[in-house]
Amino acid sequence: MTAYIIRRLLIAIPTLLLLVVASFFLMHTAPGGPFTSERPLPPEVLANIEARYGLDQPLWKQLWDYLTNIVLHFDFGPSFRFKDRDVNDIIAQGFPISLTYGSLAFIAASVVGISLGVAAAIRHNTWIDYFAVSLGIAAQALPNFIMGPILILTFTLWLGWLPGGGWNGGQWQYLVMPVIALSTSYMGNIARITRSSMLEVMNSNFIRTARAKGLPARTVIWRHALKPTLLPVISYLGPVFVYVLTGSVFVDLYFSTGGLGQSYVSSALTRDYAVLLGVTILYGGLTVVVNLATDLAYAWFDPKIRY
């Protein structure tokens, strides 16, 4: 197991490196930059600005400095747009917000999705089952950017129950809609996967044996059926986390929560490459870590897998 973890970590390093290097070169080959404007700057001024951000150095030197700064100081460099802020400030300000409702959405999607899926499988062909199935189908057509407008239309414009956006220190009224918008489609998918997995498990031989020896239904489900049921669900949770991360870009923008996604999109539009690169690397790194965690959880849940 330890050897497996180490091997996985060793794969994670070139992954991150490739991500950084590829995005770095992509951005530096792009025509135009953050300092290209309609009114061209005098060449001396431009030269000074470029020297300030180290853009006059050869490309490999820039890359090397960038990499060493990240590795040694966890420093993503200064923002090209905001003179008084660097990328770390922007991340420190936006990321906790995105992380708060992101993890809430992740937990909500997993807990509600799994419970619904299990309930649907146990009460096969009842209204709970039909509800879970329809939610699973609707989920595919209701991604976050469709749910957002629908929620605002219902809860803010028609019912007037919830504020239409903002953060306000993370009060619950401001959290409800971002979390629902972000989690609905994954909730549906998780419910669908859990349901079909559970139905399959409930038909297997060891469950029949457990029933035959007279165990109460509760024990059969909790002790025997749940763990194998969750295996395919767990392998789906890694991708869900990534979707929640990218979905948070939408939520930040649409609900004006002030999270990282807002900076991401605005930096993409103003070509503030430093911020764009920093956030991409942060999200890429998180993805790698979560994928690792998923694989480990999978190994823990499935005793057949040995490394």
């Binding site: 070139p14 992509l26 990218t246 993805t287």
Partner: peptide
């Protein structure tokens, strides 16, 4: 595997911003 570990929507945004 390496490419799959990167959030693809972000890559998509990156490519669109950079290449126009």
């Amino acid at each position: 595997d390496i490419l799959l570990a990167i959030p693809l929507t972000l890559v998509l945004i990156l490519i669109l911003v950079i290449a126009g």
